[in-house]
Simulated assay, not measured.
Amino acid sequence: MNPSTDAPSLRPNDLLTFIMALACGVAVANIYYAQPLLDTLARYFDVGQGSAGVIITMTQLGYATGLILLVPLGDLLERRRLITAMSVVTALSLAGIALSPTIELFIVTALATGVTAVVAQVLVPFAAHMASDAERGRVVGRVMTGLLLGILLARVVSGSIADLLGWRAVYWIAAGIMILQTIMLARLLPKEPAQSAMPYGRLLLSVLTLMREEPLLRRRIFYGALGFAAFSAFWTTIPFLLAQAPYHYPDSMIGLFGLLGVAGALCANFAGSLHDRGHSRSGTVLFQAMIGVSFVLMAVYAHSLAAIILGIILLDLGVQGNQILNQSAIYQIRPDARSRITTAYMTCYFLGGAAGSAGAAYLYQFAGWSGACALGGTLGLTGVLFWLTEPPRQSVKPV
């Protein structure tokens, strides 16, 4: 099925694209609110920094679980109904976090939030499906800009609210926003018929078939997992660095560092245009190199605020630019299986993120900031070396 010819009535206009971008940002923000609060949560629940870091790891593992079990339903069920149902459950999970009396219950409800927050990954292939071939990179770029801004602004909002009203208020407000989003999406998203009629079990197994049959998908999965592992390694450990000497920043100030990543989010449209113009290969190595360089800079000049700021900008440009190139490429592979392609890609992406956050939290306890940066730099370098094995031209079958 080619959306440019078979579903013209569903093509997204600018307003619908904006709404879907906003919804993606709101949904994915829910798994990042805890990052600038880790030092505060460790003190509140009287646990170590490594135990607090488990919150991020479990949230990302929950997200990976949702990608495996829920996102493929986007090819099987009517997507508007699926999206609104998942949004309601996310709101309930956020309320559970706000009520958590212990770190154990916090972790369990954070895991549940991660599972249902994958609604963002149902929206992205929905937008890609509605777009024509010629504009798919641009549409994906715009929707992903909203998703990336949600990731970045979540830290700023979370830190500011926590300083003013306490960390529980962050999650009560987030739950309310998800309810409002559910109402908006139920009214504005178009209905769309299911893309597949196969049973649920076969639908899940077909994800593995796609990974086996599509070399471009496997390659882009590896790039994505490396990039998000580096990204998560940084954001899991930077609150500990900034809360200590010589910085001694409060949660609100740590959260503000997320604004520096806006450069990466705004790069989404540029990266989408690179794909549409056929420059994905050269863009990939550029963005991978940025990841590695950012960690070298921040490791060498750990006590320089200017170096940390520049490093964050380079890291976000590299990770987010590469993400847009990856997704623009994989959504050309099989138009009838875009939700399952999303499952394959994003599951590995968030497993990479979970491994990066867990590895960085562990290394930080024993080797400090230098250990975390060594991990991130190695991941970036691995991406560059892997790029050297890439065929000069990789194309997909026309759709």
Rank of each mutant, 00 (worst) to 15 (best):
W167N: 04
M198V: 11
I177F: 04
R168Y: 14
A127W: 12
V124M: 15
Y223F: 07
M144D: 04
I183C: 07
Q195T: 14
P125F: 15
G141Q: 03
D133G: 14
A225Y: 07
R218Q: 08
L165C: 09
Q121E: 03
A229L: 07
Q195P: 04
Q121A: 03
W167M: 11
A131T: 03
R219H: 07
D133T: 15
L148D: 12
L204V: 05
L242T: 13
L226Q: 10
L216S: 15
L180C: 13
L147K: 11
W172E: 11
A186W: 14
L153V: 11
W172H: 12
S158G: 15
Y249L: 13
A169T: 11
F240P: 01
I238L: 01
V124N: 14
A225E: 02
R218H: 07
L185T: 02
F126C: 09
P125R: 15
S206W: 05
P215L: 02
R187D: 00
L208K: 12
R212F: 01
P199E: 00
I173A: 06
M211C: 13
Y223D: 01
R187A: 06
A174K: 07
E192H: 08
R155F: 11
I179T: 11
I177D: 12
V143M: 10
L149Q: 02
Q181E: 13
L241W: 10
T236E: 08
Q195M: 15
M130N: 09
A154K: 03
L203W: 04
I177E: 07
V156C: 10
L152M: 11
A169W: 00
L217F: 04
T209F: 07
L188M: 12
L241Y: 03
D163V: 07
L242Q: 02
A197M: 03
R218K: 11
T237C: 12
P190G: 06
V124E: 13
K191G: 11
A229K: 00
P199W: 00
A245I: 11
L165V: 10
A245T: 15
Q244S: 06
R138Q: 10
A225C: 11
P246W: 05
L241C: 03
A194I: 00
T236P: 09
I161Q: 02
S196I: 02
R138H: 09
R136N: 08
A175E: 06
R220G: 06
A233S: 02
R218D: 09
I179P: 14
D163I: 00
F231V: 00
D163P: 12
Q181N: 08
R142T: 15
M184A: 15
I183L: 14
L165S: 14
S160N: 14
R138A: 12
Q244V: 05
M144I: 06
R136G: 09
